[in-house]
Design a protein around this nucleic acid. Structure first.
Lengths: 168, 168
DNA sequence: TCGAATTTTCAGTAAAATCTGAAAATCCTA
DNA sequence: TAGGATTTTCAGATTTTACTGAAAATTCGA
């Protein structure tokens, strides 16, 4: 496989993979494009490379910047904006974990906590079953939340190192 | 909040949460319904409870059974099929991790491996950058894959126990 | 301050995902 | 093994999500 072909394949696959995880395909493709680009790219270059409209590129780039996966880069003597992606995969993973935790896990935790305050006869088996289930999901989610907290703050080598030891 | 209201809220939220993770909303709602039900349910009961068509319930129940999150239950003296969900959240999580790993992570690993075999001048900075990026994603994904392998096989108390120690 | 370059917005359109419902297939029991 | 009960299928309808492109807003140099 030639480099250009491999790049296309990567962008393609990354997009397909992302949709399965509830991430917009185009956003993932732009991210992939920047990940394998050696230099920052302008809107027009991205439009050309991925055959997207200006509006679409603009929207998704903004989102990527919001997520902290892509940065605006000022190019000397250029008025246009350029963008480049963080290449350190460990940092990328941390950003994603942090953001999804904040946007998805934390709101869920809130709802679960709320639901445990359901009122009624404590001896009612229906009620008991409900609080049991919701409670255990809540407990689990809280543990997951904490784990992510730690992973997020961890240093890469420390993280994998610990994990390797732990696996033995 | 009353029990019925809480149940509805739970089903609702679980569905909304699921969509963010690339899981079909209805599938998640059926799962949620069964999670907070104290007894197995028939197609008709689920249709009624969630206001869904027979076809939709059938499709999504089948998918849940495929995932291993829901089981067919034979009820004495009943010709119709009944279904109930695994309530042990740890088991549920393991099934989900295992399935998503198999369906999504493993195919991605395959693609990444393939992409590292890109041919060309080893000194070309473009090529080097590409293999560098793809290689590090591949390495990361493989680590994640292994971690999940271990978590999947682990026993709950051992898992959280180790994690707690590890956090200190 | 003017105006060309660039970015942003968003109403309308397109594409993708999901759902319906009725017909076909299957499954039981008498 | 006939026939009602139940489950499955899937073409078409609906809903949701994403995209386009042109107009509006903004930015910046002269």
């Amino acid at each position: 496989m030639k480099l250009e072909e491999a790049r296309q394949q990567f962008i393609q696959s990354w997009g397909a993979f992302a949709t399965q995880w509830g991430i917009n395909k185009t956003m993932a493709q732009i991210h992939a494009l920047l990940l394998v680009s050696t230099r920052p790219m302008s809107h027009d270059e991205m439009m050309e490379a991925l055959q997207l409209s200006r509006g679409n590129v603009n929207m998704n780039i903004r989102e990527l910047v919001n997520w902290g996966l892509v940065q605006r880069v000022v190019m000397a003597g250029e008025r246009r904006e350029f963008f480049s992606a963080e290449k350190d995969i460990w940092k990328v993973a941390r950003v994603i974990v942090k953001e999804r935790k904040k946007r998805e896990l934390e709101p869920m935790l809130q709802v679960l906590e709320e639901l445990q305050r359901v009122e009624g006869d404590k001896k009612d088996p229906e009620l008991k079953a409900f609080t049991e289930t919701v409670g255990s999901i809540g407990k689990f989610a809280k543990q997951a939340d904490k784990s992510m907290e730690v992973i997020m703050k961890a240093d890469e080598s420390w993280f994998w190192g610990s994990l390797v030891k732990w696996f033995k």
